[in-house]
Design a protein around this nucleic acid. Structure first.
Lengths: 338, 338
DNA sequence: CTGAAAGCGCTAACAT
DNA sequence: ATGTTAGCGCTTTCAG
């Protein structure tokens, strides 16, 4: 039998009435939150089904029940890095029956602050954020929110609550050491609009520090005022090589997208890689690893960052102990382009 | 002045008390939902600020206020297509102050059904779904939910409410016609695990129909039982060419990731593209368009699908008229690989 | 423009 | 194992 009219969504009390039990019993049965006789369970479930009952978690959460929403604030979805992180988050959250509520800050601290308030107004169970220059007000709101908060990507800063990520400075440093060890003498750098990307800046700093330790320095730098892309990397390398400066034997790119663009430029311009020019990136994207010659790069564990951050939220919610800082590390990928 | 203790989050009634107005007036002031004297507005805002008041939308929505959450169900985040769609959704939703609540179905109808109920239990303002074989029960729930529902990606099926996407069959057909027009005679196909991807199947069908119309047929087909990737495309083409069948002069790949893998295989194996072998993909990813030789492909307007779907939700919510079916179309990209 | 009353639909806290 | 009582914090009526 189906209900013919649908004047209003059926409520728990209607389910309870039909099942011949009290509201709270129906509630317990439907949530499996407390012991309920198999028979009553059955009755309630049948009643719910026959009425087409759909739980209202708004009311449940307001009445003190738990939320299964987790606010997630990312700076962008255009950079593949963040969908990867989101995937990790979603995977782990989903296992526990939680759902991300998404906000995109567009790398804007003011928008970020607005988002934080807005998402928090739904009283989520936790919040995960890839910070974009968080304002002091933002930090204060998060501090007072009384829920688990995980700042992701970077662990070089001091988090409000917890942080999960890697040291980008260390990654740049490690790459410099690796390449110095392979004998390159005149390294250059090609980057995208890194003013909005403090992590890329940190890598560059680490890279320079690594060179410096070996008595080397960057022979040249090109940075372009656009978001990173394959096309931009191509263009950036072309611009670099067009200059009448000391010719580099190696180019460190701000990330893999850019580096792959560099590789494509070399292909098109007949430059042998790595014989004439070595190339290195950052991220370890599938893209770079699928090139005819695998890209030398640093694999960032983006999905793992998401998974770990979700894990922190869940651990906290379940009263388990959590680390303030979690370093998921990185791995150097010795490809064929260096 | 800051509050020292924080025994409980401040409520609207505390704000109202401090501002010396009634609860409802404070509510109106904070929402700008009705006319309020500039003075009272100021008083209320000041009170809210000084208490560190954070609106509770759970209560608001339960009391009949609007929700600004939109449920979004996608089959995966691993395939770049869906983050692209999500980006479009987020962009448009964000403009209107709405937020996506995300669920991933993993291409599983049962999980999809579970997700629908779960997300709907938060009483979102609307729902956007890229269907994965929706069960009849799922459709029924959506039909009865009494909110705007947009099914995305495909418009070859009959939606519960609205649909936004393109005809994948038409895209395959158009590509076949284009390539036939360029004189190819022995086309082959390389695909990923298309049993889970009805849209890829529809493209293949369209492609075959197009060939048929020209008196041609597929010379060979390879499909591999894994999700699409560059590596898989490379492997697939290698497998195809290894066989002792009629040698193809053209390969249509299930999508761009796969096709780029094909291009890479050719590079590595010394096969001239398109002289020895032409290659075509689907999606129009930046990846393919950044290759030394631009990939021939069909650009799907993924982000626009997201934007348009969000627009449908918003239009409906604001009482504007909405189309049942919206075809965002596609465009043939005549690259250098064919 | 502001207020008073009533209740959204559910669950925690105590009973029993 | 089940029921009773009280709200959760807000917004919708309807008044003034």
């Amino acid at each position: 039998m189906q209900i013919e009219k649908r004047p209003r969504k059926p409520t728990l009390s209607e389910v309870a009435a039909l099942a011949g039990v009290s509201e709270i019993t129906a509630s317990r049965a439907l949530r499996a939150s407390a012991a309920v006789t198999p028979e009553t369970l059955q009755k309630v479930q049948d009643a719910a089904r026959s009425l087409g009952y759909l739980r209202n978690r708004l009311a449940g959460a307001l009445a003190g029940g738990p939320s299964n929403q987790v606010a997630v604030i990312l700076p962008s979805l255009s950079n593949i890095v963040f969908p990867d992180v989101l995937k990790g988050l979603e995977d782990r959250l989903d296992d526990a029956g939680f759902h991300p509520v998404l906000g995109i800050s567009n790398y804007d601290p003011a928008q970020e602050e607005h988002l934080i308030r807005n998402l928090l107004s739904w009283r989520p169970a936790g919040l995960v954020i890839a910070p974009s220059g968080m304002t002091e007000a933002s930090r204060a709101v998060l501090r007072d929110a009384g829920l688990p908060v995980v700042e992701i990507m970077d662990i070089d800063t001091d988090p409000v609550d917890m942080a999960v990520g890697m040291s980008h400075r260390a990654a740049g440093l490690a790459m410099a050491r690796h390449l110095v060890g392979r004998g390159y003498k005149t390294p250059a750098y090609v980057g995208h609009d890194i003013t909005r990307d403090p992590r890329a800046v940190a890598r560059l700093e680490g890279f320079r520090a690594g060179l410096h330790q070996a008595g080397l320095a960057l022979a040249d730098i090109v940075t372009l005022a656009s978001p990173s892309s394959v096309a931009l990397g191509r263009q950036g390398l072309a611009a670099l090589l067009d200059r009448n400066t000391q010719h580099p034997d190696l180019v460190y790119f701000s990330n893999d997208d850019m580096a792959v663009g560099g590789v494509f430029h070399c292909m098109a311009a007949g430059i042998a890689v790595p014989a004439d020019l070595a190339i290195a990136g950052f991220n370890g994207l599938e893209l770079g690893q699928s090139l005819p010659v695998r890209l030398t790069t640093t694999a960032s564990h983006r999905t793992r960052i998401g998974e770990t951050a979700a894990g922190c939220i869940l651990d906290r919610l379940q009263g388990r102990e959590t680390a303030r800082l979690t370093d998921v590390g990185f791995s150097l990928v010795e490809g064929g382009t260096s």
